[in-house]
Amino acid sequence: MTEQRYHVMGMTCGRCADRLGSEVGGVLGVNGVHVDLGTGSVTVTGEAFDGAKVCAAIAGAGFEVAAVL
C-alpha cells in the first residue's frame, strides 16, 4: 500500500474538506483519503495511484497543491 501526503491551500471549512475528499477518492487506485482541515493536509492511500491525477483532482475541486510531503 502506498501513502502520500499533500499540503493543500484554500480549504476553509468542513464542506471544502468533504468536496476535496470526494474528488480525490474518485481517482483510480485511491483506497482512502484523510483530510485534515486544521493542518491543510490530505493523506491519500492506495495500491497504485497516479500522484499527478491526485493533484489534478485537488485542482479540479478548486484547491491548490502547495507541496507534496
Rank of each mutant, 00 (worst) to 15 (best):
T2V: 10
A67M: 10
A67T: 08
G46Q: 07
L69M: 13
V27G: 03
V8Y: 03
G40I: 06
V24T: 02
G40T: 09
R5L: 01
V65Q: 04
G60L: 04
E3T: 13
A56W: 02
V33C: 07
F49A: 08
A61F: 11
D50T: 02
G26I: 13
M9V: 14
C16F: 09
S41W: 08
A48S: 15
D36M: 10
T2P: 05
A57T: 06
L28H: 10
G29C: 15
A66Q: 12
A52R: 05
A48P: 02
F63R: 06
T43P: 06
A56E: 04
A52L: 11
A61D: 12
G46Y: 03
C13L: 15
E23G: 03
Q4E: 13
A61I: 14
G26L: 10
D36N: 15
H7C: 03
A48E: 06
T12F: 00
A56N: 02
T2L: 13
D18F: 00
F63P: 00
V27P: 05
V33S: 03
T43W: 00
V35L: 01
M9N: 07
A61R: 15
D18S: 14
L28D: 15
G40Y: 09
V35I: 07
G46A: 12
A66S: 10
T12M: 02
M1T: 01
V35W: 00
V24Q: 00
T45A: 09
G21E: 14
T12V: 12
V33L: 12
G10K: 08
G40K: 11
D18E: 06
A66K: 12
I58D: 06
G38E: 14
A59D: 14
V24G: 00
A48N: 15
G25W: 04
